[in-house]
Design a protein around this nucleic acid. Structure first.
Length: 490
RNA sequence: GGCGACGUGGCGAAGUGGCCUAACGCAGCGGUCUGCAAAACCGCCAUCACCGGUUCGAAUCCGGUCGUCGCCUCCA
């Protein structure tokens, strides 16, 4: 398949050298709740992994948690809990949300705090090669040591200095030198090291974890575009400096950022929607459709309209994936559809086109159902390809408590209809709809299902969900002032 | 200032030289079905920011204009 490679800035054939394919995706810092931007990244790489496996390749995926850094410390301090407590709590939440999103677990989920030894080994190795130096309890990486520093982000050290606001630090040999090890400050978590007590710098954990779990050269490394510089640039510098092997990663894959819509939204705290809230309002398939409807390298703008449309689309697929058909495969050309799907996905993971194939299959299924034709093979293919995209085609859960009462109302309404008391029967139906339950009458009786959210219902719900988005950990960080349209920030 | 992306129907979004009078989804409109609905089905709804050029032929290539956005700082 062709995959865009950030390193070469063009689409290239993806030719993994390892079996299983070694794949590393930068995870999150578990200091606050996940939002839709995180969902975008994790869904994209979940789909890439599923697609590779569907193509018959084995994949070894590592997805890390960076559970120690300044934000972790600050947050834990504010909450009055320890950093490990904060990490444990947030990682639990993430993993619960990942499960609901139908994200397949990685093979390894390393945590920075459990990889200190490996990090120190790498730091020590870099010092030995004079690619790093200790200074007053800190250790810095020498950006002038690699001959090609800046190759991933496509910029020179001069450019970086010109544009960046560099804080003065006389300990550094070069202003862009970055920290590998931070000397401990009072009250902060610290580990012993040859350079004194301290904690790892931001980038070193990923080098250490990738090296430890995947080896010196890996096939694919993923993450959000915002990580290209400095995080991934520095990861390359550290890893290649340490091993002496290049390239550290043959294929770098980055997803574009999710953005907030208009000014109003960016200024308003309540509109930065959490993953929890998104899951509750639009369902896992709805969220996936929203993200997969665009290409992973194009920025995606959050809007309630789009999410509602995606949730409706998910409902359409779900209904088609659950149609009742006569037995038999039918004569629809499923191989053509399968090939179309593969062609789309092979072209730099073109999920918008892949999704179009699923909708065409859904259409064919509905036609078959209308005509009373068999289409078992079409149904099987829809479910199979849906699986590659991580779609489940399951109804959002209706509270188990409510179900018996809904059944009861449906039955009461049946009696009213039998008695031709249509006005009352319709009243029951309307009232249920107002509560998010759709009734469908047919010859075989009445079915009910949870309604996809309407724009009105979402808008009505959102002011109230500001509090929900706030969660037990305090409010999500407000968007910075002075920007018209902000990237969702964590 | 440096690096980069983008502008396609009411909305989202594919398509990067002829199969495009432009996929797919949402919304809308007309019809079928239905007690009425819902779902589904049938049908309808764009000439691709603007200007100029290249070409037998351009949404797709080149130049210009206008507009939008991202990264360069913690960030998926």
């Amino acid at each position: 398949m062709q995959l865009y490679n950030t390193l070469t800035r063009r689409k290239e054939p993806f030719e993994p050298q390892h079996d299983p394919i070694s794949m590393y995706v930068c995870g999150i810092t578990p200091y606050d709740d996940a939002h839709l931007g995180h969902a975008m990244s994790i869904i994209v790489f979940d789909v890439l992994r599923r697609y590779l496996e569907w193509g018959g390749r084995a994949v070894r995926l590592v997805y890390n948690f960076t559970d120690i850094d300044d934000k972790m410390i600050a947050r834990a301090h504010r909450l009055g809990i320890s950093v490990p407590e904060l990490a444990a709590q947030q990682i639990d939440r993430f993993q619960q949300e990942w499960r609901e999103l139908n994200i397949r677990a990685a093979d390894v989920h390393p945590r920075a705090t459990q990889e200190i030894e490996k990090m120190q080994e790498v730091i020590g190795g870099l010092i030995d090669k004079d690619a790093a130096y200790a200074a007053a309890g800190d250790v810095y990486f020498r950006v002038q040591s690699p001959p090609d520093y800046g190759k991933l982000s496509n910029r020179s050290l001069d450019d970086m200095i010109a544009g960046a606001r560099i804080e003065q630090n006389s300990l550094k040999a070069h202003p862009m030198d970055f920290t590998l090890w931070k000397g401990a400050k009072p009250g902060e978590p610290a580990w012993d090291s040859p350079w004194g007590p301290g904690r790892p710098g931001w980038h070193i954990e990923c080098s250490a974890m990738a090296l430890r779990y995947l080896g010196e050269q890996i096939d694919l490394h993923g993450g959000g575009m915002d990580l290209i510089f400095p995080h991934h640039e520095n990861e390359i510098a550290q890893s290649e400096g340490f091993t002496g092997e290049a390239p550290f990663v043959t294929h770098w894959v980055h997803n574009a950022m999710m953005q907030l819509g208009d000014e109003k939204m960016s200024k308003s705290l309540g509109n930065i929607i959490s993953l929890r809230q998104g899951l509750d309002q639009y369902g896992a398939d709805g969220l996936r459709l929203f993200i997969l409807n665009g290409h992973y390298r194009s920025p995606l703008t959050y809007s309630e309209e789009s999410l509602v449309a995606s949730a409706r689309g998910a409902e359409r697929l779900r209904i088609a994936a659950n149609v009742t058909l006569p037995d038999g495969d039918g004569d629809f050309d499923v191989n053509a559809s399968r090939a179309r799907f593969r062609t789309a996905m092979d072209d730099d993971l073109s999920t918008p086109q892949a999704l179009a194939v699923l909708f065409d299959l859904a259409h064919e299924l509905n036609r078959a159902a209308t005509d009373g034709r068999p289409a078992g093979a079409t149904l099987a293919l829809l479910r199979e390809l849906g699986g590659v995209l991580g779609l489940r085609f399951e109804a959002p859960e209706q509270g188990a408590l409510a179900a018996p009462f809904i059944d009861l109302l449906v039955d009461v309404r049946r009696r009213l209809r039998d008695a031709k008391q249509y006005e009352l029967a319709d009243q029951v139906r309307d009232d249920l709809l107002a509560n998010g339950v759709v009734l469908e009458d047919s010859r075989d009786g009445t079915q009910w299902r949870t309604a996809a959210p309407s724009l009105e219902s979402v808008r009505a719900a959102n002011p109230a969900t500001v509090a929900a988005a706030t969660g037990p950990n305090g409010p999500l960080r407000p968007a910075p002032e002075g920007k018209e349209a902000d990237t969702l920030r964590f």
